[in-house]
Simulated scan of single mutants.
Amino acid sequence: MELTALYARSVDLAAEVVDTVTPAHMDLATPCGDWTLRRLMEHIVGQHQGFAAAARGAGPDLALWADAPVGDDPAGAFRRTAEDLKAAFAEAEAEAADRKLWLPEIRDGGPFPLELAVGFQLVDTLVHAWDVAASLGTPSGLAAAVNGDPALAAALVSASELVPAGPESRGPDRAFRERLPQEDADTPFERALALLGRDPAWKP
């Protein structure tokens, strides 16, 4: 599955961003509503653990998706759990490419085809890495790296287009805000951000 390799690439790019996070940054604001950078990192790590459990056959148990503490080593927590998730996706693909995963935080919980689940997580990885970079004031490097990889950029936009746009899925208390106009989106990454309700010009 090409998407699994693209997901691994997204993790590598995200890790380069997260490696620059230090304990001194953890109270910074983020594009994610009132979340601090610590809360965002705990969410990201919790999502890694939830997706890994789902890839290994866990049922729709929300407790497996809880935010996870990152302590004073957010980069280490990210890398450990991201590598485990990459391994879990690879294991699932090797066992059965038509594997279905329960994702209790998404829509009706599923089950979802493995390829769709990998696409969801690719979006999460790249967009939350952008959130982290924006919080640090350095979002342009990640966006440029993704835009410079046509296959990865296309996968990001395609998966972002699948996120429901209705009011039941969008809003201040939802995972994504309302879609923004895409007329001014000059790059694939900006288009994906607009599809997900992120302002590419956001600053702390």
Results as ranks from 00 to 15, higher is better:
D19M: 12
T20H: 12
T22K: 07
A24G: 12
H25L: 13
M26Q: 15
P31N: 06
P31E: 07
C32W: 01
G33N: 10
D34T: 15
W35F: 11
W35S: 06
T36P: 01
R38V: 03
R39N: 12
R39A: 15
L40D: 01
L40G: 00
M41S: 09
M41F: 06
E42H: 07
E42Q: 12
H43N: 04
I44H: 06
F51Y: 14
D61P: 01
D61G: 03
L64S: 07
W65E: 02
A68W: 11
V70S: 00
G71N: 08
D72N: 13
R79G: 06
R79Q: 12
T81R: 12
A82L: 06
E83K: 13
K86S: 15
K86M: 13
K86D: 15
A88G: 02
F89M: 08
A90K: 07
E91I: 02
A92S: 11
A96E: 11
A96S: 11
A97Q: 12
A97E: 14
R99A: 13
L101M: 09
W102A: 12
L103Q: 05
P104W: 08
P104K: 09
E105N: 15
R107M: 15
G109R: 05
G110T: 05
P111G: 08
F112K: 03
A117N: 05
V118A: 05
